[in-house]
């Protein structure tokens, strides 16, 4: 079997990588503290209240992580407009029939495990892109519900922007409930996401895992060309339209 010609492609720019890991970190912290806030363990049962503040700290971490998460997310939206083609927002939002066709292709190959097939993608494959799109929506839900809850306990201007949210959810009860339920989306996403990253690395051997470290992927020539063609078609369409 002939060795494929590999191309070293710079996929993830530094801001995307920083975003990714800050985001992962923030979510980890938010889930961990969120679980505790939702159901605090019985660890402090003696002493005086003024000697302790652990639950306060847990909430404090949750709120710090929340701000980090929020601004990081805003930044990523910005980068979707100025970053490289792999970071472009169009990778996430299905805009064409081709997108869905590709997506079905990925599902066939990666999810239903078409025998000995691999998918050709450099940045996100369309399915991953679409799932990230869902993820972004979940981010929004969490930001709105979270800051909506936070508005009542914070003097901050940012939280104040969300003061209308509780009424929208029919009061704090529903709001908390949705905030809590949405957490499970993150947990499930993270499980599947991390697994799939390993899966891609293992099946395709393009350096998927390390790519979020250094930004590089190692892509077969044919795959790269296939991907380039898709990108160019998209760009051409855009030019025609305008």
């Amino acid at each position: 079997m002939a060795t494929h010609a590999l191309r070293r492609v710079f996929v993830w720019e530094l801001p995307v990588r920083i975003y990714h890991w800050l985001n992962a970190l923030a979510i980890l912290a938010l889930v961990a503290t969120g679980l505790i806030i939702g159901n605090p363990p019985a660890i402090q049962t003696g002493g005086e209240a003024y000697d302790n503040f652990w639950f306060g700290w847990v909430r404090y971490i949750h709120f710090i992580a929340a701000y980090l998460f929020f601004f990081n997310f805003i930044f990523r939206i910005y980068w979707g407009f100025v970053g490289n083609k792999y970071a472009d927002w169009k990778n996430f939002i299905p805009t064409s029939k081709a997108f869905f066709k590709e997506m079905w292709e990925v599902i066939r190959i990666d999810i239903f495990l078409a025998r000995n097939k691999e998918h050709m993608a450099v940045g996100h494959n369309p399915l991953a892109g679409f799932i990230y799109f869902m993820t972004f929506i979940a981010f929004m839900v969490q930001v709105f519900t979270g800051f909506g809850l936070y508005a009542a306990m914070s003097q901050s201007f940012i939280a104040g922007l969300f003061a209308w949210v509780p009424a929208f959810f029919g009061g704090d009860f529903g709001l908390r409930q949705w905030h809590h339920i949405a957490m499970w989306f993150f947990i499930l996403f993270a499980m599947v996401h991390v697994y799939l990253v390993f899966y891609h690395d293992y099946v395709e051997g393009r350096g998927e895992i390390s790519s979020m470290g250094g930004g590089w992927k190692f892509i077969e020539e044919e795959a790269f060309e296939h991907d380039e063609k898709l990108h160019q078609e998209k760009a051409a369409k855009k030019r025609v339209k305008s």
Binding site: M1, A114, N116, K117, Y202, V203, G205
Partner: peptide
């Protein structure tokens, strides 16, 4: 899925390893 991957993509993976 992991088990399935090893079963259904074994040729592909072997090919990569050989490569």
């Amino acid at each position: 899925h992991a088990i399935g991957t090893n079963l259904r993509k074994s040729k592909l993976i072997d090919a990569h390893i050989n490569e």
